[in-house]
């Protein structure tokens, strides 16, 4: 039976969809805003598709994409009048090196996060829902729940630290 003809669109889409979470994570790490990362991800897909003929399939697709993503993030920083964090370019480059190393483990972390999310309390889940799903500001959550901004921030901080500890433990736990 003959194999189906090679379809570069299909091939690229499959690779990109699989790599997308890791590339998004890399971009968020450098631009510190997931909406900005969403926009850059679209530009990234466009650039990678244009260069897809040059892609060597023996190389991990994520690693190939990170080269483009790094450049996009650097360009984004140069365009900003006011950065969320006023990083020097050399610090940004160091951060990008570290983020690239972490991106390789992104899928493991995501799987660990999903396990850890199951252990959250209803209250913790509710504050994450307000912050990340409804995209409410900390101020707005505080107003809605009749709490102070500091109280909501502390809840979020506690959830972050709980999740980081759980992910770390999950990833370092010996395989059964």
């Amino acid at each position: 039976m003959e194999s189906p003809p090679y379809d570069p669109h299909l091939s690229f889409t499959r690779l990109f969809v699989t790599a997308q979470p890791a590339l998004h994570g890399f971009l968020v790490s450098l631009v510190h805003d997931h909406h900005a990362a969403d926009d850059l991800l679209q530009d990234l897909a466009e650039r990678m598709w244009r260069k897809f003929d040059d892609y060597d399939e023996r190389r991990p697709f994520v690693a190939w994409g990170i080269g483009f993503a790094r450049l996009l993030a650097l360009e984004w920083h140069r365009r900003q009048q006011r950065l969320p964090i006023p990083l020097a370019e050399e610090t940004l480059a160091l951060l990008a090196d570290e983020a690239a190393a972490q991106a390789i483990h992104h899928d493991d972390r995501l799987a660990a996060l999903r396990t850890c999310l199951k252990h959250l309390t209803d209250r913790q889940r509710a504050v994450l829902q307000s912050r990340y799903q409804k995209e409410q500001s900390v101020d707005a959550i505080a107003r809605e729940s009749n709490r102070t901004q500091m109280a909501i921030y502390k809840m979020l901080k506690h959830v972050h630290r709980t999740l980081l500890a759980c992910i770390s433990e999950t990833l370092t736990r010996p395989m059964p």
Partner: peptide, 9 residues
Amino acid sequence: MLHGMLARE
């Protein structure tokens, strides 16, 4: 990265 993953999840 956790912030980004939570937003996507």
